[in-house]
Write a protein that binds this DNA or RNA. Structure first.
Length: 305
DNA sequence: ACCGGTCCCTGTTAGC
DNA sequence: TGCTAACAGGGACCGG
C-alpha cells in the first residue's frame, strides 16, 4: 500500500522517465480516476495537452508534476494506484484508468488502479501555507519537496517529516493538544503527512510506544523517539525501494519493492519480536489492525486494557 | 475546532 | 463445490 516511501520511489521514477516531456494526448478510461478534477475529464485532458512536465514533487503521499502553465498534474495513489511508464504497445490491463501520451517517441504514462481510491487532477499551484517569509525561496533541494508552491488540493495537509518545512517543536506542541491515541495522530495527514497504517506500526515499534498511548501524556522524549522512529523507518523503506504486500503495488517501472521483508511489527502477528522474542500481537483498531510487541510496547495502564 | 465513525471500491481469502 | 462475509485501507465527509 503506497505510503510516503512508495510514493517517493514513484516520484524518482517519474523524474527520470517523464519530466521534461510534452504531453500530446490524454485518455481517461474511468471517470472516477479524475473525480478530484471537478471540471471533468475533458477539462482535465485539455489542461494537459501541449504542456511540458517540469518536475516531480512530493509531500506526504501526494505527488505532483508542475506544468509550464502554472498548474500541476496531481496524483494520489490511494490504496492500489500505480503510475507506470510503458511503451504505447504494451497491453492495457483491466485496471488502466488514464493514459498520457507524449509528443516524443518515449514511453507513455499510465495510471492503473484496481480499487479506484486513487486519482489524478490538474490543479492550480498556490503558495505553500507551511512555508512563509524568506524561507519560501529555499527548500528546493530537499527530498521530495520542490518548492514554496503546492497544488490547491494539497495545501491542507501538513509537511511530511522528511521535509525541511516540518517543524518538530510545532508537531510536539500540536500532538500534546490532541485528545486521542498516538497512532490515530500519526495517521492524521493534517498533523504529519506521509504515514499510513504500515509505517505507523513500524515507527511505534521502533519508538517502543503503544498505539493507544494518549497524545496529551506523551513526554518530550517520547515525541523525540517517535519522530526518530518515523524518520528512520521511512528512510530505510525509501532505500529499500518501497514496501510491497502483493502484486498491487509496483513502482514506476513495474518492479515491486521489497521492504516487506524488513517489517518488524506490521503483519507479523505471532512472530517473535526482533528485540525481545515476545510474539507480536494484533489488535483490532478503528476497523483495521494495529500490530505491536506487548513487552516492548506496553499498554497504557490508564486505559484499563 | 476537534474527534470518532462511516463510506467509497474490488480482489482475495476464510468459512460454512 | 459454491456461495457469502470479512478484510485490506486513505481520505472525504458527517454528526456529535
Amino acid at each position: 500500500m503506497p505510503e510516503l516511501p512508495e510514493v517517493e520511489t514513484v516520484r524518482r521514477g517519474l523524474e527520470r522517465l517523464v519530466v521534461g516531456r510534452s504531453v500530446a494526448a490524454v485518455q481517461v478510461d474511468h471517470a472516477r480516476a479524475v473525480r478530484r478534477h471537478e471540471a471533468g475529464a475533458q477539462d482535465f485532458a485539455g489542461l494537459l495537452v501541449g504542456r511540458t512536465l517540469q518536475a516531480a514533487v512530493r509531500r506526504g503521499k501526494y505527488l505532483w508534476l508542475p506544468l509550464d502553465s502554472g498548474d500541476a498534474l496531481v496524483a494520489h495513489l490511494g490504496m492500489s494506484g500505480q503510475l507506470l511508464a510503458l511503451a504505447a504497445e504494451a497491453p492495457a490491463g483491466p485496471h488502466l484508468r488514464v493514459r498520457v501520451r507524449f509528443a516524443d517517441s518515449g514511453p507513455e504514462l499510465r495510471f492503473v488502479d484496481q480499487r479506484t481510491f486513487g486519482g489524478l487532477a490538474v490543479q492550480e499551484l498556490v503558495r505553500d501555507p507551511a512555508v512563509r517569509g524568506e524561507t519560501a525561496v529555499r527548500g528546493n533541494t530537499a527530498v521530495g519537496v520542490g518548492a514554496a508552491l503546492v497544488p490547491r488540493g494539497v495545501a491542507h495537509i501538513a509537511p511530511d517529516p522528511l521535509e525541511p518545512a516540518f517543524d518538530d517543536a510545532a508537531f510536539a506542541a500540536a500532538l500534546r493538544k490532541r485528545r486521542t491515541g498516538v497512532k490515530r495522530a500519526l495517521l492524521d495527514q493534517t498533523l504529519i503527512s506521509g504515514i499510513g497504517n504500515i509505517y505507523a506500526d513500524e515507527a511505534l515499534w521502533r519508538a517502543r510506544l503503544h498505539w493507544a498511548r494518549p497524545t496529551e501524556a506523551l513526554r518530550p522524549i517520547d515525541v523525540r523517539r517517535l519522530l526518530q522512529g518515523v524518520r528512520e523507518v521511512l528512510a530505510d523503506a525509501i532505500e529499500a525501494g518501497g514496501t510491497s504486500f502483493d502484486a498491487l503495488y509496483v513502482n514506476v517501472n513495474g518492479e515491486s519493492g521489497w521492504f516487506d521483508r524488513s517489517l518488524d511489527a506490521y503483519g507479523q502477528e505471532g512472530r517473535p519480536c526482533r528485540r525481545c522474542g515476545t510474539p507480536i500481537r494484533r489488535d483490532r483498531w478503528m476497523n483495521r489492525s494495529a500490530y505491536s510487541c506487548s513487552k516492548c510496547q506496553p499498554r497504557p495502564r490508564s486505559l484499563g486494557l
